[in-house]
Design a protein around this nucleic acid. Structure first.
Lengths: 218, 218
DNA sequence: AACAGACCTGACCAACCAGTCAAGTTTAAA
DNA sequence: TTTAAACTTGACTGGTTGGTCAGGTCTGTT
């Protein structure tokens, strides 16, 4: 016996490899989120993945390459959430769906969100190119849509950028500052609290830009 | 010659000490913001403060003690900004002033804000007690005020916590994610852009909670 | 002037960490 | 069954880092 996970089934070569890589990435995500890139140690990641440290280097050549993969995996999730901003939909529906999705990501991908925040906060040394390409073009397209809504008189005049930043900030806050929120709340937010927070955020933003939202309890 | 700063005047003993300590704290704030606690090195801080590394240890016993002082200094600034939420003022004025002040802090204390965000993101190992005492009581008092406004029918019914988190998140975002914002903006925000962003944030939030703000160009 | 204590700093060290490697074991294909 | 490649891992290493310290300089006081 020399399997990685305690309860690892012996699948095919490729399956096992994939599984081990995912286990390492999962562990790395948590450790990087907790300690930052500089504070994280390969040993800590190895311990969390229940693998010898040398094994990590068999799958990922260096700490930086491992970190890069973690960040890229997060970016994929970010992109998927971004896609839920439907440029064809009505303003209210599009924004509400996008905010709800981002709140959900903050709840389910807390560690990933933190890694992303850390990376950007430290000047995005790894993912600068993503910011300049994928993020930029996504943002530009959404700015155009919101400007169209404004031109049509459906949304109060404003620079869409400040609105997007506000949505990013607010939703991401629930992941990045989860510890602070949970300290003030004396424990993790309940399902009901998450729903209420999401609804309140939607309500403030939609009303704030001049829409009259119906209750979003679909 | 053995002075710290290139252009240091020979003041009194106490003055010089204070000046050197501040120079170290300033340097440490920047380096901790850029690299996180784990990624920062005493050597990097020393270089930035233009002092030999051993000198840092003369003034601050350990890296952790230095970090602690940096964080405590930030918390003081946070408290000062928090005080601008005037519980006596009208809802619109109180919130507008508070948001404006927080936006200003984000602009002027970018590094400090990042250190704070980092600390909280990593579970607030150093300042947990502040969160539980000062932050908690400040928050409770403001929640009470907002609830009073709601009871008086001046603000749309909502849980004040989600509103406060939204304000914290949005304003802090301009410091923590400055790099992302500046990438999308192809450069730092101008004075006019800061003013516009601030006004837009105020507008969305105030309208979002049911107030009809007059233009805040005081 | 003489002294004590505050202040400064180059050189050093022990601990730690990313990354390597050689000697294995397991797997799958021939 | 044989064989080669994929995988595993304990032990090791070179470089870095937080922290120390001895020997010096400066400053205010008597």
């Amino acid at each position: 016996m020399a399997q990685a996970e305690g309860a690892e089934k012996s699948g095919s070569r490729a399956e096992n490899r994939e599984e081990t890589e995912r286990a390492i990435l999962d562990a790395a995500e948590v450790v990087f989120a907790q300690s930052g890139f500089g504070g994280a140690t390969m040993q800590a990641i190895a311990d969390r993945a229940r693998l010898p440290k040398a094994n990590l280097h068999y799958y990922f050549a260096s700490k930086e390459k491992l970190y890069r993969q973690v960040v890229e995996r997060i970016f994929t999730i970010w992109l998927e959430a971004a896609a839920s901003f439907d440029t064809e939909a009505e303003p209210e529906a599009a924004l509400r769906r996008y905010i709800q999705r981002k709140m959900q990501v903050s709840r389910e991908q807390r560690h990933g969100s933190k890694v992303w925040a850390n990376e950007v906060m430290h000047g995005a040394p790894i993912i600068q190119d993503y910011l300049e390409s994928a993020l930029k073009s996504w943002t530009d397209s959404r700015i155009a849509v919101i400007n169209r809504w404004i031109a049509e008189g459906r949304v109060r005049p404003l620079d869409p950028r400040w609105l997007l930043y506000m949505i990013w900030a607010t939703t991401q806050h629930y992941a990045d500052f989860a510890h602070q929120i949970e300290t003030l709340n004396a424990g993790p937010l309940s399902d009901a609290q998450w729903a209420e927070a999401t609804e309140t955020v939607c309500g403030i933003i939609l009303r704030g830009i001049g829409l009259e939202p119906a209750d979003g309890l679909a």
